[in-house]
Amino acid sequence: MAIHVRTLGDKDFFAWLGLFEGYSEFYKSELTDEKALRVWSWIIDRNHVLNGAVAVSDDGDFVGFAHYREVPNTLSATRGLFIDDLFVAPEHRTSGVGRSLIEFAKEYATGHKLATVQWITAADNETAQRLYDDVGTRTDWVTYEIEL
């Protein structure tokens, strides 16, 4: 199966939504219509920092997505790309879709003269970590969070 990765466009909402529902379910996060519409509005708003890409199969099915944004790296005085979300439909995992989405992010970063591509994943997401260990370098940083 050949995969083509491209940026998300205005007419992609319903196909993207099916994947976003799967992503929310994977991370056990309730997805409401309001949340989905808000995230989608961010992705398609050219003035918002969040961008999105979709992996499309030969037959036109959406099989994965990545949401990403440019971020400043203060210690190096450079800018980088942060992948907020990367999801591959369960039936397409380990088929190269995730790798293609990461490659798209790398090409985006290179084209925009960004210095790094970074992302985080759940500690128990071992399937994804096998790919991530192959394409990137695991860091020593520990992530913290405060919910408000």
Rank of each mutant, 00 (worst) to 15 (best):
M1K: 11
M1V: 12
I3F: 03
R6P: 01
R6I: 05
T7Q: 15
G9D: 13
D10G: 10
K11N: 13
F13Q: 07
W16S: 00
G18N: 11
G18D: 04
F20D: 02
F20A: 05
F20R: 06
G22I: 04
G22F: 03
Y23D: 05
Y23R: 05
Y23W: 06
S24Q: 06
S24F: 00
Y27L: 06
E30D: 15
L31Q: 02
T32V: 10
T32W: 09
T32L: 02
E34L: 12
E34S: 13
K35A: 15
K35I: 14
L37R: 15
L37W: 14
L37S: 12
R38D: 12
S41D: 01
W42V: 11
D45E: 07
D45M: 03
N47F: 08
H48D: 13
H48E: 07
L50K: 09
N51W: 03
N51I: 00
G52W: 06
G52S: 03
G52H: 01
G52Q: 05
G52V: 10
A53F: 09
A53I: 02
V54L: 13
A55D: 08
S57E: 00
S57L: 04
S57Q: 01
F62S: 06
V63I: 07
A66N: 02
A66K: 04
A66Y: 03
H67Q: 07
H67G: 03
Y68N: 05
Y68H: 04
E70F: 02
V71Q: 03
V71M: 07
N73P: 01
N73T: 07
S76F: 04
T78K: 10
G80R: 01
G80V: 04
L81Y: 01
I83T: 05
I83E: 00
D84R: 09
D84Q: 09
A89E: 14
H92F: 15
R93F: 06
R93C: 00
T94R: 14
T94P: 11
G96M: 02
R99A: 10
A105V: 07
K106N: 09
A109K: 00
H112R: 05
L114W: 07
L114G: 02
T116K: 05
Q118H: 08
Q118P: 04
I120G: 11
T121N: 02
T121E: 08
A122L: 13
A122P: 12
N125L: 12
E126L: 13
E126K: 12
A128E: 08
R130I: 10
L131M: 06
L131V: 01
Y132L: 10
D133V: 04
D134M: 06
D134G: 12
V135N: 00
T137G: 08
R138C: 02
R138H: 10
R138A: 09
R138I: 00
T139W: 08
W141P: 03
W141A: 00
V142Q: 14
T143Y: 15
T143K: 15
Y144Q: 11
Y144R: 11
E145K: 14
I146G: 11
E147N: 14
E147Q: 14
L148F: 11
